[in-house]
């Protein structure tokens, strides 16, 4: 098994490590960096609990070799809040879009990218967008609600900034 020197920028901070070539990105995050907010829920790339943003796009980090993320930017749930909760986090709380919290980090990161691509998604578009992330607790109703509320909050924030500009 070969070793590799990698630099992965995680939540804005470059992380350099010597790693085994087969190390999965999710284990790099959880075990090398101690960022345990990224969870593991399956072994078939189905559940999406391990979703992080890889260069801004949602990726299932259980199916990415850490060496293949060399040079990339990764955002995990720990990088969402900026002191204050991110509007997505706020909306998940207000809409009761989480119960056990296990799928929540992946769900929120997928939602973040979804809103960036589509600032005003319909219910159907949200359901489509989060269909790579399984939740066993909520029945999705409140997650969909949360994503739409977060989108509205982000739009209005952007609108306010535009007004100030």
């Amino acid at each position: 098994m070969s070793a590799h020197h990698v630099t992965i920028t995680v939540n804005g901070e470059p992380m350099e490590r010597e790693i085994e070539s087969r190390l999965l990105l999710v284990h790099f995050l959880r075990e090398e960096l101690g960022l345990t907010g990224t969870h593991i829920g399956c072994d078939t790339t189905s559940c999406g609990a391990c979703t992080v943003l890889l260069n801004g796009k949602p990726a299932k980090s259980c199916t990415v070799l850490a060496v293949a993320a060399d040079g990339a930017e990764v955002t995990t749930v720990e990088g969402l809040a900026n002191g204050e909760l991110h509007p997505i986090q706020q909306a998940f709380m207000e809409c009761h879009g989480l119960q056990c919290g296990f799928c929540t980090p992946g769900m929120m990161l997928t939602s973040k990218a979804l809103i960036e691509e589509n600032p005003d998604p319909t219910e159907a578009e949200v359901r489509w967008g989060i269909s790579g992330n399984l939740c066993r607790c909520t029945g999705y109703v409140n997650i969909v609600e949360a994503v739409r509320q977060a989108a509205a909050a982000i739009r209005s924030e952007a609108g306010e900034e535009a007004d100030h500009a």
Binding site: T45, S46, G48, T51, L54, K57, P58, A59, K60, T63, V64, T110, W128, G129, I130, S131, G132, N133
Partner: peptide, 9 residues
Amino acid sequence: IADPVVRNL
């Protein structure tokens, strides 16, 4: 194909 997150990679 697969799901939206998988299709990103």
